[in-house]
Design a protein around this nucleic acid. Sequence first.
DNA 1: TATTGTTATACTCTATAACTATA
DNA 2: TATAGTTATAGAGTATAACAATA
Lengths: 153, 153
Amino acid sequence: MQELFDECARDILDVIPRIMQFIRVEMRSKRTPDLTVPQFRTLAFINRRPGVSLSEVAEHIGITLPSASKLADGLVGRALITRQEAFIDRRKVTLEITPQGKALLNAALQGAHAGLAIGLQGLSQEDLAAIQRAMRVLRPIYSPETNPIATER
Amino acid sequence: MQELFDECARDILDVIPRIMQFIRVEMRSKRTPDLTVPQFRTLAFINRRPGVSLSEVAEHIGITLPSASKLADGLVGRALITRQEAFIDRRKVTLEITPQGKALLNAALQGAHAGLAIGLQGLSQEDLAAIQRAMRVLRPIYSPETNPIATER
DNA sequence: TATTGTTATACTCTATAACTATA
DNA sequence: TATAGTTATAGAGTATAACAATA
């Protein structure tokens, strides 16, 4: 049984970086608006949770606060998000997505979905179900929000 | 049915970056020898295929030749691989892993497996099977070797 | 001419350390 | 004193463009 865990871990370590590279290339290709993966993830997170603080972004993405600060710099510079001092606690910062940010995010989402979906066309319904199940169970395990060990350095 | 493809693509786009970030953090943590993910992948590839050329590495990792060249610089600098002019075609370069490289690779593999496997402990046998199936079917789809579209820029 | 690789240049991602401002 | 964020600094990943050497 321990065998199975190890096999799974090996498979994950082999395959996830390949898929990630695919996503990265798709995101930077001419087919899709130019966003890096961290920029895309940040934009999507702020879109889902308007008004989040920088710390929350850092935790969600799984990076340090200084890294998140720089990441936000870039998005603010491109006018995809806004950054304001928070009312209640002036140490904090409040992030919001701009209309341009929303538009770009949606275009990037569509491009990335399309790129990924093309590859899936040949798969059986069972294969697709396995993928969905795998993603569903893996998600909480390796997310910093639900598993703090996921960001222990 | 198109629905299913789209759902799958969405799930992949949401979950794969999380797992990747987990792997990245694990690889740079004190628990594991300090290797970046691309360095790790390159080392593993050269270990599996001694004597590969730089172009083959670039294709496998999914990066350009200049990027691969720089990546190799770092590994040569740390004496984890050697780089030699090829006999048959002197334009090419022949990459080999060193004993230190092998040792570090094995330690990194162990560390990363252990880190990943911990999270899997709570899963059922069916969940693990779904993960394995998902990884098996996704692998060729998003690998540059088997799907050249995976590196189209 | 085409292929293999390197060098130059430029950006982004990421970290740690040091700092400021607020609580 | 503790928390939220920024700035400074540094190294790695990545790309495109220009180049050299070999086939």
